[in-house]
Amino acid sequence: MVRLNCVLLIDDDEPTNYLNEKLIREAGCADTVVTKESGEEGLEYLVSCAEGNIALPDLIFLDINMPAMNGWEFLEEYRKLDESIQSQVLLIMLSTSLNPDDHKRAEEMQEVAGFIHKPFTTITLEEILEDYFKSNGN
């Protein structure tokens, strides 16, 4: 099984973070799982990793509908980060939205690798690991 160094969850809903963190931990596919409850906090974390020479998350799950900085606004700022950060991170949107426009918008963004619907499940997690990380070895 693929094992990641770090997964970052960005969602304003505490129970959602709780559940998803538990799911990832129990799947045993990451050394650490970090949860942030807003887009701003997520960005700060990425910047602090880069500045503090802490390993960046390999995988980010990003919610869309959040107060203040929503998922789309997060992506605007994320885009401005150093390219070395973006090249190390795989970003997947994890949303309740069934709106096809959201899906399309995500697909058109270079920074977004995938779009999945809540609830997040072990099967989805395994598929992501299989699709995006398996070829990297480990």
């Binding site: 304003d12 409850e37 807003s38 107060p67 203040a68 606004e73």
Partner: peptide
């Protein structure tokens, strides 16, 4: 400035529930 329109939407919030309660 960028939030001037969004705040009039249903259930739109600019802060976390912990900071300011309410549904928006």
């Amino acid at each position: 400035e960028k939030h001037k329109d969004r705040i009039f939407g249903i259930f739109q919030r600019l802060h976390s529930k912990k900071k300011y309660e309410g549904t928006g």
